[in-house]
Design a binder for these strands. Structure first.
Lengths: 198, 198
DNA sequence: CGGTAGGGATAGGGTTCT
DNA sequence: TAGAACCCTATCCCTACC
């Protein structure tokens, strides 16, 4: 039993990401020796960096899937008024019907690529905003989520038009200046993150 | 669709306790592989062992500190926020190195895993020390544990001789003056607590 | 030996069932 | 509501291979 468990702080994680950007993956000892990161990561070993990077990669790839589970679970809690603490904006929302996002093979009627009626073309702006908020909520990143994560979440969970990223970027700007989102800038972060406020 | 909840039998629980005595906590796979216990625990996974041990410990903790905990919660409605960075207790250290803590393989002949023949009369001092450290570790009390909690933990988890308390008290004194334990005096506490240090 | 990649085990937080 | 059993996965450990 070494240390009970040393959770990675957002600072450390940011430093690791920045380190990988600078030196590349697999250069754990190099990152650790870089004075730019050594102070933040002083309590980590090269192996720790490797493990953490693996974990980050895995969760990034996976991205959504857990959303499906969350959605399923949200449908059960009956007590409607349950609004504990400061759940900022929309409490969980189910974007796609549970069953539907499954590959939904055997789509009767055959090919019709159009069978996926969930085209964003049908969504209004406010709907996009809602999706953004949902993404941030479900991504559950303690420090908020950056654009890329938000994009990926939406891509994985919705049928998106080619200009989705641009639209999302626009809405993010709007939501963080007039709306319920907040930008988070961090010393070692290369990108701005967004989180929701109450 | 999960398993129909397999309740732990007294035999399994006894085997688990004996396994922890022999190999220490956190050695779940080792315990499971030990032919002395594997037959009894063959339907359990290492994770099951870990979970069961946790339940046992929690029960012991509640048995000993229930009132204090409740009192604390009433007084401090706000739960402690995350305290990463320098977790005081987290750096807890391996009191006895994994490798050497291995008790002498001369496990008392009792073959049946179900028998807890672990009467302290046969235990060496170091073994008692290990149990004390284990108690403190598993009690997980953020400010260390006092004598009474330690006594109760041991009583609930091990077969003990009548003079256990005295022996434990003696060992606590020793461990905190020459060993890996530290006494903690708290402003509003009546008794001295003990915790382990690196 | 020092370092990295992978596989596997453990620790803790959550969830489900009773 | 609580307790026991079980699940999820971040973190940590071990080993093979340079």
């Amino acid at each position: 039993m070494g240390a009970p468990k040393q959770k990675w702080t957002p600072e450390e994680e940011a430093a690791l990401k920045a380190g990988v950007l600078k030196h590349g993956t697999g250069k754990w000892r190099t990152i650790l020796s870089d004075p730019q990161f050594s102070s933040v990561l002083k309590s980590r070993s090269n192996v720790d960096l490797k493990d953490k990077w693996r974990n980050i990669s895995v969760t990034a790839l996976w991205g959504s899937r857990k959303k499906a589970k969350l959605a399923l679970r949200k449908t059960l809690p009956a007590p409607p008024k349950q609004d504990h603490t400061n759940n900022t904006t929309s409490l969980s929302i189910v974007p796609l019907a549970n069953g539907q996002e499954r590959t939904n093979p055997t789509s009767p009627g055959g090919s019709g690529a159009g069978s996926l009626q969930t085209h964003a073309s049908k969504r209004s702006i406010t709907s996009l905003d809602r999706i953004i908020l949902e993404a941030i909520t479900n991504l559950k990143e303690p420090r908020g989520s950056d654009r890329t994560s938000i994009f990926m979440y939406i891509e994985e969970n919705f049928k998106t038009p080619p200009n989705m990223k641009r639209n999302v970027a626009v809405r993010l700007k709007h939501l963080s200046s007039n709306g319920p989102l907040v930008k988070i800038k961090h010393k070692y972060r290369f990108s701005t993150n967004f989180t929701s406020v109450g």
